[in-house]
Amino acid sequence: MSEHHHHDESVPHRHPLRADQDDTLTYWRAMEIAVRELLIDKEITTADEVRREVEAMDNRTPAHGGRVIARAWSDPDFRKLLLEDGNAACEAMGLERGLYKLVAVENTDKVHNVVVCTLCSCYPRFLLGLPPDWYKSRNYRSRVISDPRAVLGEFGTVVGDDAVVRVHDSTADMRYLVVPKRPSGTEGFSESKLAELVTRDAMIGVSFARQP
Protein backbone atom coordinates (compact mmCIF):
# COMPACT_ATOMS: atom_id res chain seq x y z
CA MET A 1 0.00 0.00 0.00
CA SER A 2 1.41 3.36 -0.92
CA GLU A 3 2.11 6.19 1.48
CA HIS A 4 -0.77 8.08 -0.01
CA HIS A 5 -3.41 5.76 1.42
CA HIS A 6 -2.30 6.33 4.99
CA HIS A 7 -4.08 9.68 4.84
CA ASP A 8 -7.66 10.12 5.94
CA GLU A 9 -9.70 9.22 2.83
CA SER A 10 -12.34 11.81 3.67
CA VAL A 11 -9.81 14.62 3.07
CA PRO A 12 -8.98 14.33 -0.62
CA HIS A 13 -6.81 17.48 -0.84
CA ARG A 14 -4.04 18.18 1.63
CA HIS A 15 -3.17 21.53 0.05
CA PRO A 16 -5.29 24.63 0.82
CA LEU A 17 -8.07 25.32 -1.66
CA ARG A 18 -7.63 28.37 -3.83
CA ALA A 19 -10.47 30.83 -3.31
CA ASP A 20 -12.90 31.27 -6.18
CA GLN A 21 -12.47 34.55 -8.00
CA ASP A 22 -15.74 34.63 -9.91
CA ASP A 23 -18.28 34.59 -7.11
CA THR A 24 -18.54 38.31 -6.42
CA LEU A 25 -20.86 40.29 -8.63
CA THR A 26 -19.08 43.63 -8.61
CA TYR A 27 -20.46 46.76 -10.25
CA TRP A 28 -18.29 46.33 -13.37
CA ARG A 29 -19.05 42.61 -13.68
CA ALA A 30 -22.77 43.37 -13.58
CA MET A 31 -22.24 46.12 -16.17
CA GLU A 32 -20.32 43.76 -18.49
CA ILE A 33 -23.01 41.06 -18.25
CA ALA A 34 -25.82 43.57 -18.80
CA VAL A 35 -24.19 45.14 -21.88
CA ARG A 36 -23.23 41.76 -23.36
CA GLU A 37 -26.75 40.31 -22.88
CA LEU A 38 -28.34 43.42 -24.36
CA LEU A 39 -26.07 43.28 -27.44
CA ILE A 40 -26.93 39.61 -27.91
CA ASP A 41 -30.70 40.19 -27.40
CA LYS A 42 -30.62 42.99 -29.96
CA GLU A 43 -28.74 40.69 -32.35
CA ILE A 44 -25.81 43.09 -32.64
CA THR A 45 -23.47 40.28 -31.67
CA THR A 46 -23.75 36.63 -30.65
CA ALA A 47 -22.46 34.64 -27.70
CA ASP A 48 -20.27 32.66 -30.10
CA GLU A 49 -18.76 35.83 -31.54
CA VAL A 50 -17.88 37.05 -28.02
CA ARG A 51 -16.35 33.65 -27.23
CA ARG A 52 -14.35 33.69 -30.48
CA GLU A 53 -12.91 37.15 -29.68
CA VAL A 54 -11.86 35.99 -26.21
CA GLU A 55 -10.29 32.90 -27.74
CA ALA A 56 -8.47 34.99 -30.37
CA MET A 57 -7.21 37.34 -27.64
CA ASP A 58 -5.84 34.42 -25.65
CA ASN A 59 -4.17 33.02 -28.77
CA ARG A 60 -2.09 36.15 -29.35
CA THR A 61 1.29 35.47 -27.79
CA PRO A 62 4.76 37.04 -27.79
CA ALA A 63 5.70 34.40 -30.40
CA HIS A 64 4.17 36.70 -33.03
CA GLY A 65 6.45 39.54 -32.00
CA GLY A 66 9.39 37.14 -31.85
CA ARG A 67 8.89 36.20 -35.50
CA VAL A 68 8.87 39.87 -36.48
CA ILE A 69 12.10 40.57 -34.60
CA ALA A 70 13.83 37.48 -36.04
CA ARG A 71 12.89 38.63 -39.55
CA ALA A 72 14.23 42.12 -38.83
CA TRP A 73 17.54 40.63 -37.64
CA SER A 74 17.79 38.50 -40.79
CA ASP A 75 16.53 40.80 -43.53
CA PRO A 76 17.83 44.42 -43.77
CA ASP A 77 14.97 45.52 -46.05
CA PHE A 78 12.40 44.16 -43.61
CA ARG A 79 14.19 45.85 -40.69
CA LYS A 80 13.97 49.17 -42.57
CA LEU A 81 10.25 48.65 -43.24
CA LEU A 82 9.61 47.71 -39.59
CA LEU A 83 11.31 50.88 -38.32
CA GLU A 84 9.49 53.08 -40.88
CA ASP A 85 6.03 51.49 -40.85
CA GLY A 86 5.52 48.82 -38.20
CA ASN A 87 1.98 47.95 -39.27
CA ALA A 88 2.98 47.40 -42.90
CA ALA A 89 5.82 45.15 -41.72
CA CYS A 90 3.41 43.00 -39.68
CA GLU A 91 1.04 42.77 -42.63
CA ALA A 92 3.93 41.74 -44.90
CA MET A 93 4.52 38.77 -42.57
CA GLY A 94 0.87 37.73 -42.73
CA LEU A 95 0.21 38.90 -39.16
CA GLU A 96 -2.57 41.19 -37.99
CA ARG A 97 -1.99 44.78 -39.02
CA GLY A 98 -3.13 46.03 -35.61
CA LEU A 99 -5.67 48.71 -34.77
CA TYR A 100 -3.07 51.21 -33.56
CA LYS A 101 0.01 52.60 -35.23
CA LEU A 102 3.04 50.47 -34.38
CA VAL A 103 6.30 52.29 -33.64
CA ALA A 104 9.31 49.96 -33.57
CA VAL A 105 12.33 51.32 -31.69
CA GLU A 106 15.70 49.69 -32.09
CA ASN A 107 18.23 48.91 -29.37
CA THR A 108 21.85 49.44 -30.33
CA ASP A 109 25.17 49.73 -28.51
CA LYS A 110 24.34 53.41 -27.99
CA VAL A 111 20.58 53.33 -27.20
CA HIS A 112 18.43 51.18 -24.93
CA ASN A 113 14.65 51.62 -25.31
CA VAL A 114 12.03 50.65 -22.73
CA VAL A 115 8.24 51.00 -22.93
CA VAL A 116 5.67 52.02 -20.32
CA CYS A 117 2.14 53.38 -20.30
CA THR A 118 2.04 55.70 -17.29
CA LEU A 119 -1.66 56.49 -17.76
CA CYS A 120 -2.99 52.93 -18.02
CA SER A 121 -1.62 49.80 -19.73
CA CYS A 122 -1.41 50.42 -23.51
CA TYR A 123 0.47 47.50 -25.05
CA PRO A 124 0.87 46.01 -28.56
CA ARG A 125 -1.51 43.14 -27.79
CA PHE A 126 -1.84 42.08 -31.42
CA LEU A 127 1.88 41.19 -31.38
CA LEU A 128 2.59 40.31 -27.74
CA GLY A 129 -0.76 39.11 -26.34
CA LEU A 130 -1.98 40.31 -22.95
CA PRO A 131 0.45 42.44 -20.93
CA PRO A 132 2.09 40.95 -17.83
CA ASP A 133 0.63 42.03 -14.49
CA TRP A 134 3.75 44.00 -13.53
CA TYR A 135 3.43 46.11 -16.70
CA LYS A 136 0.06 47.32 -15.38
CA SER A 137 1.26 47.86 -11.82
CA ARG A 138 1.54 51.33 -10.34
CA ASN A 139 5.00 50.41 -9.11
CA TYR A 140 6.42 49.78 -12.62
CA ARG A 141 4.49 52.62 -14.26
CA SER A 142 5.52 55.26 -11.75
CA ARG A 143 9.13 54.19 -11.28
CA VAL A 144 10.37 53.19 -14.73
CA ILE A 145 9.48 56.63 -16.03
CA SER A 146 11.56 58.54 -13.48
CA ASP A 147 14.31 56.06 -12.56
CA PRO A 148 14.57 53.65 -15.50
CA ARG A 149 18.11 52.45 -14.89
CA ALA A 150 17.27 51.35 -11.34
CA VAL A 151 14.12 49.50 -12.50
CA LEU A 152 16.04 47.86 -15.36
CA GLY A 153 18.61 46.78 -12.76
CA GLU A 154 15.86 45.08 -10.75
CA PHE A 155 15.06 43.06 -13.89
CA GLY A 156 18.74 42.11 -14.07
CA THR A 157 19.35 44.42 -17.02
CA VAL A 158 22.37 46.66 -16.65
CA VAL A 159 22.70 49.35 -19.30
CA GLY A 160 26.18 50.82 -19.44
CA ASP A 161 26.96 54.52 -19.12
CA ASP A 162 27.98 54.58 -22.78
CA ALA A 163 24.34 54.04 -23.82
CA VAL A 164 21.36 56.39 -23.58
CA VAL A 165 18.17 55.06 -21.97
CA ARG A 166 15.02 56.15 -23.78
CA VAL A 167 11.72 55.57 -22.01
CA HIS A 168 8.68 55.63 -24.31
CA ASP A 169 5.45 56.63 -22.58
CA SER A 170 2.61 55.12 -24.60
CA THR A 171 0.03 57.79 -23.81
CA ALA A 172 -2.15 57.93 -26.91
CA ASP A 173 -2.49 56.30 -30.34
CA MET A 174 0.93 54.64 -30.83
CA ARG A 175 1.95 51.17 -29.67
CA TYR A 176 5.62 50.34 -29.16
CA LEU A 177 7.79 47.36 -29.99
CA VAL A 178 11.41 47.26 -28.89
CA VAL A 179 13.75 45.60 -31.40
CA PRO A 180 16.36 44.05 -29.09
CA LYS A 181 20.01 43.80 -30.07
CA ARG A 182 20.78 40.57 -31.91
CA PRO A 183 22.76 38.35 -29.52
CA SER A 184 26.36 37.59 -30.40
CA GLY A 185 27.23 34.15 -31.73
CA THR A 186 24.02 33.83 -33.76
CA GLU A 187 25.56 34.24 -37.22
CA GLY A 188 23.96 31.82 -39.63
CA PHE A 189 20.97 31.08 -37.35
CA SER A 190 17.66 30.46 -39.13
CA GLU A 191 14.76 32.85 -38.43
CA SER A 192 12.94 30.23 -36.37
CA LYS A 193 16.04 29.61 -34.27
CA LEU A 194 16.50 33.37 -33.78
CA ALA A 195 12.84 33.79 -32.82
CA GLU A 196 13.37 31.46 -29.85
CA LEU A 197 15.82 33.99 -28.40
CA VAL A 198 13.28 36.85 -28.46
CA THR A 199 11.34 37.07 -25.21
CA ARG A 200 8.34 39.18 -24.29
CA ASP A 201 10.41 41.18 -21.79
CA ALA A 202 13.06 41.93 -24.42
CA MET A 203 10.35 43.38 -26.69
CA ILE A 204 9.12 45.61 -23.82
CA GLY A 205 12.74 46.60 -23.26
CA VAL A 206 13.18 45.46 -19.65
CA SER A 207 15.67 42.79 -20.71
CA PHE A 208 17.98 41.75 -23.53
CA ALA A 209 17.34 38.95 -26.00
CA ARG A 210 18.50 35.55 -24.73
CA GLN A 211 22.03 34.41 -25.51
CA PRO A 212 21.97 31.08 -27.38
Binding site: D147, R149, D161, V164, V165, R166, V167, T171
Partner: peptide, 11 residues
Protein backbone atom coordinates in the same frame (compact mmCIF):
# COMPACT_ATOMS: atom_id res chain seq x y z
CA UNK B 1 19.74 59.47 -11.18
CA UNK B 2 20.57 58.28 -14.71
CA UNK B 3 22.73 59.81 -17.38
CA UNK B 4 22.33 63.42 -18.52
CA UNK B 5 21.30 62.52 -22.05
CA UNK B 6 18.69 59.88 -21.10
CA UNK B 7 15.30 60.79 -22.56
CA UNK B 8 11.59 60.21 -22.26
CA UNK B 9 9.51 60.25 -25.45
CA UNK B 10 5.80 60.99 -25.06
CA UNK B 11 2.87 61.29 -27.44
Amino acid sequence: RGKGDDTVDIE
